[in-house]
Design a protein around this nucleic acid. Structure first.
Lengths: 325, 325
DNA sequence: GTTCATCACTTAAGCGCATTAGTAACCTAC
DNA sequence: GTAGGTTACTAATGCGCTTAAGTGATGAAC
């Protein structure tokens, strides 16, 4: 263990392979319009391997004027555990295109999105919740960055989920529906969207607008909410997500109410615990992996000149009917 | 809407403030040893504001030879929902030190950690699970990067959690203990650590080693596991985490067993749903926010010359005794 | 009244890479 | 046998920033 062993640069590789650094760059980037004989390519690649060289991102993006890092902003409390699968797929698809994904927790007291974006010099910012116009403008300018907000994607999507929840309940004959809001204010934007979907569906069915109540991860509080809904003649409630739904189920048990007889409950997100709930929870699932893949495609497309495409990706929310409804 | 409005550079700011770009840099970085009169500073800052200038991270780190990006690697399935709070606090504390946090989902099929690290040119990589030696070496070399692995921190910590679970149970008089492994293999490393803690505690108490069983988010499977433990005279089980514990609770209900009479259950992580479980779940909580803060301190310390400090941060796991034990 | 510090800056070099504009060597066509 | 094309490279520039090394002006010290 001697000195910190200076990181190797393209020059080191060039020297080791007895070529110029330009040639190394050509090989590494498969620069079009350059003819490199197999033998040279091999030598360069071998030197790269030997030195465990990997180009410094900062130098690359500075020189090339574009970077291959994609920044994903996710709401600071996860929308649900399912988000992991989404990110994973998104990252994998991006990696296929040579892009690197890093994520940032939005809303938290840390750095603001544009700062993070500038710091990592991201070329694209993707977000799961709508980015406000101000931020979007800043990002767009401040980064020569293409903002690929899911305003286009997830936004109507969230609403769609609410719609599906309500439709399911209405199809089952319910005429007065409740809505269980999440506890955390930072989830509000998403919650509002989902709620709007429920309201839409109610309006379409010509029934009363949903009766929204706040929730808490507290059995007593949820028991009270359940009784309140009963008093208001609500027969079914859409929960913001599965966690809220499960905690509502707990409240009902405390209040000696049973699902779906006294109150039918639908969750959203299909978390693993939903199937072991008592009763097993009906919920809305969607193909997050497919969504990750199509978001990645959209990013790649927007990078290669095409405007960010607007067509909704394969987000296919669907009802999973279990015993709680 | 005309051209994409070229991003403003330090030169633009310099021009607008009628100073040289060096001066702008001095002001923006509070470069020590430079005396800048208030008036000049004001002019520069005003220009920065006007142009909404923010330095390009890549240029900064290339020039300075160091970046202020910190990369946090988290296991690809979240350890628990609580991780959000940790990351949040970590990011906030880092931001106070002018550092930017981005995270990367490890284990997923996307880019490998060293690649991501190189791409964003991170100066420090922090991880929640131990980083293997190979990767660590690569990171250290390949980035002039200081690896601040939580090998030092979280590792013994995970074990500590298991220890606490078992201690709690043993203190309650249990003499034969079970362990509920997580379903997902990628959680294995963490699970093994937690399990080891349980085993330690059993050994210390002079009782049999824990009886480990695999789990699944499936009531029937969990019912079978519960019966199996009973058959093996186990009277209490430590679950890998709260989700596993809750699903075990569901299995027990199905098998007509009750907690804690037939089988006492402790979870880990204290997720919100733990308190609304039936019965409310005993679990191990810890101060993740404090942990985030102290990890950040460690990062800052390691950045300013000090070797990554080894003192355990304020991770104070403690038992939350509810009705399931 | 000269010297030396200090102040308030500016000049310029260079970080590691991508990229454009060459160039020398070889081949082909006529 | 030479103009023109192709192949396989290299030299040199510059991306936006930090920073070491100046520089001229002012003030203090003697």
């Amino acid at each position: 263990m001697t000195s910190p062993a200076k990181r190797s640069t393209i020059a080191d590789v060039a020297r080791a392979a007895s070529v110029s650094s330009a040639t190394v760059s050509f090989v590494l980037n498969d620069t079009p319009g350059q003819s490199i004989p197999e033998e040279t390519r091999r030598r360069v690649l071998e030197a790269v391997r030997q030195l465990d060289y990997r180009p410094r991102g900062s130098a690359r993006s500075l020189a090339a004027g574009r970077s291959d890092v994609i920044l994903l902003s996710i709401p600071h409390l996860s929308i649900g555990p399912s988000i992991g699968r989404f990110v994973e797929q998104f990252a994998a698809s991006l990696a296929d295109a040579g892009l690197t994904l890093v994520t940032h927790l939005a809303g938290a007291p840390g750095q603001a999105l544009p700062d993070v974006c500038a710091a990592v010099d991201a070329s694209v910012v993707a977000s799961l919740e709508p980015i406000d116009d101000d931020t979007a403008r800043t990002l767009r300018r401040a980064g020569a960055t293409i903002v690929f907000t899911t305003e286009v994607e997830a936004h109507p999507t969230m609403r769609q989920m609410g719609h599906l929840q309500a439709e399911h309940l209405i199809g089952l004959g319910h005429r007065r529906i409740g809505y269980a809001m999440p506890e955390h204010k930072l989830l509000r934007k998403i919650a509002d969207d989902r709620f709007l979907g429920v309201a839409d569906a109610c309006a379409q069915a010509g029934i009363d607008p949903p009766v929204a109540l706040d929730t808490k991860f507290d059995t007593a509080v949820m028991a009270r909410a359940a009784r309140r809904w009963r008093r208001e003649s609500v027969t079914a409630v859409c929960a913001y997500n599965d966690e809220v739904a499960i905690s509502l189920l707990a409240g009902m048990r405390r209040a000696k109410l049973t699902a779906p007889e006294d109150l039918a409950i639908v969750g959203a997100d299909d978390i693993p615990l939903a199937q072991v709930a008592d009763p097993p929870l009906s919920t809305i699932a969607f193909d997050l992996e497919k969504m990750g893949r199509s978001l990645a495609e959209a990013v790649v497309a927007s990078l290669s000149g095409g405007r960010p495409r607007v067509s909704p990706p394969a987000f296919q929310p669907h009802v999973i009917h279990r015993a709680s409804t």
